[in-house]
Nucleic acid binder design. Structure first.
Lengths: 236, 236
DNA sequence: CCAAAAGTGTTTTAGCTACACCCATGA
DNA sequence: TCATGGGTGTAGCTAAAACACTTTTGG
């Protein structure tokens, strides 16, 4: 990958994406580490001149995860001058490119639109881009210090996710198409960071009339097999 | 006012402000009409290079209303290519400036951050800027067609306002410091566009423990005088 | 004393919690 | 038949809505 070209993009505006996955016991997000800098950051990017903002984010998430269809929602736009850090940006570009110049548009101030995505952890193979050594999952209570106030952006993303959790049963986007009630409860508990009553949770979910019940899932264990559920497609 | 200068501002990014007031019977917003064009639009503006996004909006709202302190909240960022309209922008600039040129940065595409403000209608004297003939209040169910998808922005602002109404008793920002329970109820009814039960409303508001009761307000009418209330300052 | 509006008490209802119980499963 | 986890029934609690009643005000 080359450095994104100034003439192809909108200036002074970027996006950052908080990509959530659920790995069976914890809520995690994707972070990337830049080559030879020790810098961690959220995956982000820029908007092309003839591209919708939403499409730019979808494009960026697809490049990193391979996923075409995903749950994606904008949650806040970060516009403080303090969030820019030209020195860090210079270090990153310098570490990657011989063609380093002192006055790249990338060193300018950026206003950044925050998005969060909910994806099925199992479906993803994280792919680093040319600027980054690695892209990996980090549990949300174990996030390293990040560039550009990205820790703050993650805070706000989690807060928004918590507030919106009940609308439209968003948690199902973190699970496979069919899932047990217990798995759904674990997702809710990971997001809300609190234990929920088993029976109350089951009843509340069923009362929403958004879940369809399928065959049982036999685990081979010595207890009743749970039903599998899926999201009712006609309620989308 | 001159045309804002390119070298002072961030490019490709603007804000639009939906300024709400309550005039005793209806929820209204401020719209401006550009000179000699018949174009109506939301008051908006641009961000200076060393200015926080929030501060840019505060500055713009102050210029139009004279208000220094106000309730202001970002609600969504609009980034579709379809929302730009260079032709309209050219018409506006052409109608106002001899120094018209074909390639102003203002004709470029903009991503716009939407903010809404809640203000005390009585405290405001709307002031048109140099580009606009007038700035006036319009009831929210009587909004003319606007430029740049601004009708959509207003829809989204009202939707956000409805969803957030219960948090922090936001409605009080539309009223004077002291107000009757009936006035507060009218504000809520105007925002939600539905009638609320009088006694249920009173009890719910008082149960929040956010209102302080003051002296009665005698209207001269032949009925019990209502108490005046104010927002408890220690709960801010 | 009357009418109108404000404030409060009371009854009813709906939703939620907690607990208990039963069911299914494989050892 | 036992232990384990899943599903549901039921009693009790709490918050909210509906209605009625009382209070205050000026004619």
């Amino acid at each position: 990958m080359d450095i994104p070209k100034k003439e192809d993009h909108l200036l002074n505006i970027s996006y950052d994406s908080v990509i959530f996955g659920f790995s069976g016991d914890a809520l995690k997000i994707l972070l990337l580490e830049y080559h030879d800098t020790g810098f961690f950051a959220l995956p982000g990017g820029f908007v092309r001149k003839n591209e919708n903002l939403n499409d730019a984010v979808i494009r960026g998430v697809k490049e990193r995860t391979g996923l075409e269809k995903l749950f994606l929602e904008q949650f806040h736009t970060f516009g403080n001058t303090s969030r820019s850090d030209a020195a860090a940006m210079k270090t990153i570009i310098k570490a990657n490119h011989d063609s380093y110049t002192e006055d790249s548009w990338l060193f300018d101030r950026f206003i950044s639109v925050g998005y969060y995505a909910l994806i099925d952890y199992a479906k993803v193979s994280p792919t680093p881009d040319a600027l980054s050594d690695s892209i990996d999952w980090y549990a949300i209570d174990d996030i390293p210090p990040l560039l550009f106030e990205h820790n703050l952006i993650i805070e706000k993303a989690i807060e928004t996710l918590r507030n919106n959790l009940n609308k439209k049963l968003m948690g199902i986007n973190l699970l496979p198409d069919k899932f047990t009630m217990k798995a759904l409860q674990q997702v809710h508990e990971a997001i809300l960071d609190e234990k929920l009553g088993r029976t109350a949770f089951q009843r509340k979910m069923l009362s929403l009339d958004l879940l369809e019940r399928h065959e049982k899932q036999f685990s081979g264990k010595a207890h009743k097999a749970p039903y599998l559920y899926s999201f009712k497609s006609d309620k989308a």
